[in-house]
Design a protein around this nucleic acid. Structure first.
Lengths: 344, 344
DNA sequence: ATTAGCACTCTCCAGCCGAGAGTGCTAACG
DNA sequence: CGTTAGCACTCTCGGCTGGAGAGTGCTAAT
């Protein structure tokens, strides 16, 4: 059922059918299409075309004598071929800029939370953001800041100006001087390396360095690891889940429950977003493609953003029946803003 | 309808009625109570007592010829007077310890998120945690760490070992030396002050100090302010909202929706928790007392924890029909663990 | 004071019916 | 030959009904 096999009329009918269904959430009958859209065909003819589209697997009937509803594949071809993307309005662009770029610089985490929030409120869907993967980040500066008796704060500066910190617990008998020496050694030997490679590289490069305290180095490597791997849980932000309540397709308690449950698990969603991040630009994932247990009825519109070497993903999650034409632009623009802001 | 006006029988009936209702979620009839509990009275007698309790406003009938259901006030007197608290099992204590105290030291935020998660999974309610209010925290150490061209990371050590960091944007022409001088000055003049008082105290104490760069000081004060006030949004962690889906009282779409909506707004919930935090120990807030628009059918079991001078609140949010006897102990114990962990 | 008995009320569920919507097919039409 | 009018058919949905069941409140007996 490749898109090319569809004739012009079939394409047209599919388009208006989805357009109409998206705005009403009701099965679409032939009469409605004939009346409301300038197709110039009688309901009967439209019915015939609809039967064809049904055979192609692009639309289906919830039951005999109901109107038609798009299938996953229907949405797929619609998004891939029929959509005409609606550029973002200047108004909206301004809103997004204000809410995101504005104010003074904040921590990465705050920005991500804010981005998720804005996406949710602007689209009335669920806004999701994934913080950058730091393992690709190039280390530009390392600071060890003693903050209490046995605690040292590791400050890791990444090229492009991002910063991350981790607390580590050290033996109490490490003195100020040795710490400073170690810090100097770390900076000299590790600057310019990616965060992800530290685990491999650090022990090797520092083993001959008489200045560095090996215990500190070991802890440091562990801390760096923490930042790349373990942070997976914390790096996901989800906002606007209550928006789903106004969607008629989620009126069913079970359905809605299983969606929220899978979102709350975090890991599956993180994986999904990571996976979607690798392709450049905007990606629309529809229905079963989403591959989240319980969220089969959902679509994800996602886009990657990047800050120097590190990149992450943002997106919106909602019912398959969403205004792709509009939302795609919003997500794309937001990702772009985010990239800009982070590079500053 | 003070508790003392109830006679022994009324107390007994109220207790078993609530016990039974909590476990079944069905209106409780007189027959069931007579059969299932060793009251030694006939259904008819129980019915009379029930009528009395209804007049007191402690129970009510959803409709004529249904069993009785506790009212807000019913739960209130139950929790205040009739409950016999069920101590935490050793098993559960161990689980909580493992999940919370375990692993190496993490940032405050991670701990709070983890605590919310654990509370949710252990109680099958919504787990909520509020990070400590740092404005009461006593500053023990201030570090200014340059991390990029125009960026300085402010590291604020609080007595009792907690740390917070904020990024600030500085003019590019501030040199290394001046930064170090300023840092020294800040430490000397501000250590021992509470974070909340910095805004007042700092300008005064530093205005004569020739070492401190006034621009840096100004930015520093702003950063500190950020940490105390603005952080309100980020300091709340909510986990386990999907647990509500298995509660029969929230089968209704509207009800559930409005609860999740008000939780997502954050501010009302933050305020509620702050307010509940000021009283020592554990607090049970029931039904309308909760005072969250849309969450009238919920109860909150909350407890304050403290780490040195700073304190925060944790709790669980769920339907009024919850196993208070058990949950109160769990929340209390968790708060205690949290206090211990943070003081370390 | 307690309890057995009973009439009464209300909910819940299953079944039924008619209205309405929308289809697929067939036959007529240009 | 593509298009369309007409029509029989199917399926859902809302409202109505009636019976079963649960639980009450009252009264009279213990």
């Amino acid at each position: 059922m490749a898109f090319e096999t569809l004739n012009g009329r079939e394409k047209q009918i599919l388009r208006v059918l989805i357009d109409h269904y998206v705005s009403t959430a009701e099965p679409v009958g032939s009469r409605v299409l004939a009346n409301r859209y300038p197709i110039g065909l009688s309901p009967a003819t439209i019915r015939n075309t609809m039967q064809d589209l049904e055979e192609f697997g692009l639309i289906r009937q919830p039951h005999t004598s109901a109107g038609r509803v798009p299938t996953d594949e229907g949405y797929r071809t619609y998004v891939d071929n029929l959509i005409d993307r609606q550029p973002i309005t200047p108004d909206l662009a301004k809103t997004l800029q204000d809410k995101l770029a504005a104010e003074h610089m904040r921590a990465v985490d705050d920005i991500m939370a804010q981005a998720a929030h804005v996406l949710a409120s602007v689209t009335s869907q669920i806004g999701v953001t994934l913080a950058p993967r730091f393992d690709r980040g190039v280390v530009s500066r390392i600071e060890l800041v003693p903050v209490a008796e046995c605690r040292v704060l590791v400050v890791l500066g990444i090229q492009s100006g991002l910063v991350r910190t981790v607390l580590m617990e050290v033996a109490s008998d490490i003195d100020q001087r040795s710490m400073e020496e170690t810090q100097r050694a770390l900076n000299e030997r590790l600057a310019g390396q990616t965060l992800g490679s530290l685990k491999m590289i650090a022990p090797e490069r520092l083993k001959d360095d008489h200045r560095a305290d090996p215990r500190l180095v070991k802890l440091f490597v562990e801390a760096a690891e923490d930042l790349t791997g373990n942070a997976a849980g914390e790096s996901l932000h989800v906002e606007g889940t209550s928006n789903l309540f106004s969607q008629p397709e989620f009126a069913d308690h079970q359905v809605l429950g299983s969606i929220l449950r899978v979102i709350e698990k975090r890991t599956p969603l993180v994986d999904l977003l990571r996976q979607r991040g690798i392709g450049e630009g905007i990606v629309v994932t529809i229905g079963r493609e989403v591959n989240l247990e319980g969220a089969e009825g959902c679509s994800l519109v996602s886009a990657a953003y990047r800050a120097g070497e590190v990149e992450g993903t943002i997106g919106i999650l909602g019912p398959m029946r969403m205004e792709y034409a509009k939302l795609v632009s919003i997500v794309e623009y937001t990702a772009q803003l985010l990239s800009e802001q982070m590079e500053t």
